[in-house]
Design a binder for these strands. Structure first.
Lengths: 199, 199, 199, 199
DNA sequence: GATGAATGAGCCTTCATTCAT
DNA sequence: GATGAATGAAGGCTCATTCAT
């Protein structure tokens, strides 16, 4: 788990792993410390509290998630390529860290409902969500320019696409779909999004 | 809170309320007992543990949720009516108990990831989900019979409809959409599902 | 340690003992619980926190201390008898619980200097001190009536008597004076207070 | 804070300040280090432990306290002058470092009652006390030579004078007496000590 | 010698669960 | 059956102390 990072990121990485496996409450500081092969106290040298650490973990993962999506999508040029890049990238991320990627969609965080800390975390999630939706909107605009579909309510559709693509990926993971089934679903999904189920 | 229920259901009802407000970990047995105006110990006469109670609460709510959806949808006959009935009913339920209704979609439960208890709970959620998807499939079949769209991959589309309709409702709630915006989105959503964004 | 008290007073009694031996910081809840032969958690059924318990212990002891002094002094009638009763009673109390009796004089409490809690505790100590000084003043007034000395600045002398009598008792204890030496000192002290060292 | 001291005394000085403000337990090594503008580890180059440092601080202050008293008293010649010098000097010291000066009288140290360390500290306090009492005894002997009062039990009275003069000063500080009230009390106290309250 | 990052023992407090009444 | 007093395991966090640099 270690490699050559600084302690701060090492802790973040272990915390990310443990929080993902156990959730905020069932994760405990000792386990995170053990995973990072450091002492309990060291965590408190870098983070004020368990809650703070949790928030930082979320920020950390959202950052990584956004970066990866952006890089993949930007490396393509056409609507079809970009959309596929997005879907593939997202599916990958979800299968690696599905807890955190899922957070963007669920828009909910486990600990301390309605507390200030939760509000801060929610804000991060919503901001990340907005940024991803913007990426999809950019893709849709390209599709529109390519004449794939007409250009109305694209903001709304970007939102919906986001939900559906994510849901589809997450569900595939949870229901342990085969590779074939996933590919079929992906095709059907895109076809339906563009043409509706009427065609 | 009580009226004339038996203690078992009274506890279930209070627990449902408190778990929804606080989540599994932040909810206390004592608070549930107070809400039900009974003694702490009494809860253990009816439920083995906090975890068991939580699972029962989920079962209880899934049952209620399914029942309500079924009743509403069955009371209508055409595709349009049934779909609208489904959407309205679901939106209502979500705004009343969005924590629990949300569970069906998130397919995740807070406490003790990967434990036996969680597996049991997940099973309940997946079963409920399957039953709701079946209801939607029934609606789609009627739409297909009505000639609204062709009859292929309907099982898959039912699944997708479910995700999208739920997501849409949940998001409307979370983002505090106005009534007007909700109505517009609902219309756009159905239009897109049937016709795609190309039209 | 137990006898037949209610739990509240049992805890207070054990806490009094342990706090006296170790001071606030070095005393720990577990030891107090063990001394009272109860579980750690039980203490928190009766007291909100370690700090609260500490304050209650002080109140408890001040109460007992005042009561005892009052009873002893009231049971006598002449100046000489009352003064001796006061001295004897105080000496006894100090040798039994010298930490707490000492507090009245030191006017200082160990934990959290300048915090709200400390302020509250200080107030209790000062109030107790005022009440004891009043008892001594009453004794002095009787002495004055008896013609033992003239009646001026008695309030001030009551204050000084208090300090000196207490100090004398406390020092005797700390320096492990013999009974004889204590008796001699007591006599000398009273003599000096009344006649000064000039006679 | 530093000026030109060696590190050892610099630490002692900062520790003295912080211990006085917070008490032994609530004072942190890190705070002492910050006050001295040095690293935490450096303290352990000069002192074995927090406890050792605390003891050294007490020794340090007792030394300073004795020195000052001695210098002031020696600079005078008559009983009246010496006594006043003592009182004034002590009052000054107490208002500057009342925590430490108070220790001599209280004869108690906060941390670890009954431990070996505390015993060592107590010894220092008692030795200091003895030395101060000796100073007062010297003053009384001069008074006796001057014919102010007869020469019996002076050792005992020296002890009592010490207690009373100190108490008076400490109480004046704690109860925030005005300058006038302090002067009055000082006069009354000396008068009573010499003549008793009967005159 | 000076430093401060790292450590882990220790402590307060919570809360699910038990059980005598 | 109903209760709530009693319990103690568990966990977050602090801080004196160490030691590699």
């Amino acid at each position: 788990m270690a490699r050559e990072k600084n302690k701060h990121d090492l802790i973040l990485s272990s915390a990310s792993k443990v929080f993902a496996q156990k959730g905020f409450h069932d994760a405990n500081i000792i386990e995170i410390a053990k995973d990072a092969s450091i002492g309990k106290g060291t965590i408190y040298e870098y983070f004020d509290s368990k809650m703070t650490l949790y928030i930082e973990v979320i920020k950390f993962n959202m950052e990584k998630y956004l970066m990866r999506i952006r890089n993949q999508v930007m490396s393509k040029t056409t609507f079809d390529e970009k959309l596929e890049a997005y879907i593939n990238c997202h599916t990958e991320i979800i299968s690696e860290h599905y807890q955190y990627a899922g957070l963007v969609m669920n828009g909910s965080v486990e600990p301390m409902f309605n507390s200030k800390n939760t509000q801060e975390t929610l804000l991060i999630l919503l901001e990340t969500r907005d940024k991803v939706v913007q990426i999809i909107l950019d893709i849709l605009v390209i599709g529109s320019i390519e004449g794939k579909f007409k250009n109305s309510h694209l903001e709304y559709y970007a939102d919906l696409f986001f939900e559906m693509l994510n849901r589809s990926a997450l569900r595939a993971l949870m229901l342990h779909h085969t590779q074939d089934k996933q590919t079929l679903e992906k095709t059907l999904l895109i076809q339906m999004l563009i043409n509706g189920i009427g065609h």
